[in-house]
């Protein structure tokens, strides 16, 4: 064990100061120190995409960054994005379309979807799949996720919210 060193950063809009071991990854810092367990660790080597968070607004792997290296930076996790309603329509579309099963990959998927949906023009299904290329999902087979993201593109282009499909969701098939 090495001496803990101070680090301060903004996490989901909150200024936080902590002492951490230098070897602590941002992913472990968020999950253990901040108790933000929405960010998941699926491989701890930057492959699965479950641990994606926003670093100064851009998705990065929280398992591939040291917490100490985030000094002064702004981090947003799925919890922050959910609470600020920044991804409310994406969450709704995922829910309507059942674009998640076990939900373990979902925080990373939502972070990527949030980034994809910043595109000024709607992406094609192929382009959406390309942008999702670093997010592993074992349950869905991806199609529902692509559908949900498409649905948000359509809604945003029309300037409307994604409405809850309520008790009777439309199936895509």
């Amino acid at each position: 064990m090495t001496e803990r060193v101070p680090v301060s950063m903004t996490v989901n809009g909150e200024d936080v100061q902590r002492f951490v071991e230098p070897r602590t990854t941002l992913g472990d810092f968020l999950r253990v120190e901040m108790e933000l367990t929405g960010t998941h660790l699926g491989c701890e080597m930057g492959v699965c995409g479950a641990c994606l968070v926003l670093l100064n607004g851009k998705p990065i792997h929280s398992c591939l960054m040291l917490a100490v290296a985030a000094e002064g930076e702004t981090i947003e996790t799925v919890e922050g994005l959910a609470e600020s309603k920044a991804i409310a329509d994406i969450q709704q579309a995922f829910h309507n379309r059942n674009a998640l099963q076990c939900g373990f990959c979902t925080p990373g998927m939502l972070v990527t979807a949030h980034e994809i949906l910043k595109s000024e023009h709607p992406l094609t299904r192929e382009e959406i799949r390309d942008e999702l290329s670093g997010n592993y999902c074992r349950c869905t087979g991806y199609e529902a996720i692509v559908d949900a993201i498409e649905q948000v593109f359509v809604a945003r282009a029309a300037g409307r919210e994604v409405e809850a499909s309520g008790q009777f969701a439309e199936t895509a098939a």
Partner: peptide, 18 residues
């Protein structure tokens, strides 16, 4: 009927408890 999953909402909010 194709109804949505009530328990999926917490997973979508990062509030799953694995």
């Amino acid at each position: 009927r194709s109804v949505t999953r009530p328990n999926a909402l917490r997973l979508l909010a990062g509030k799953g408890r694995y």
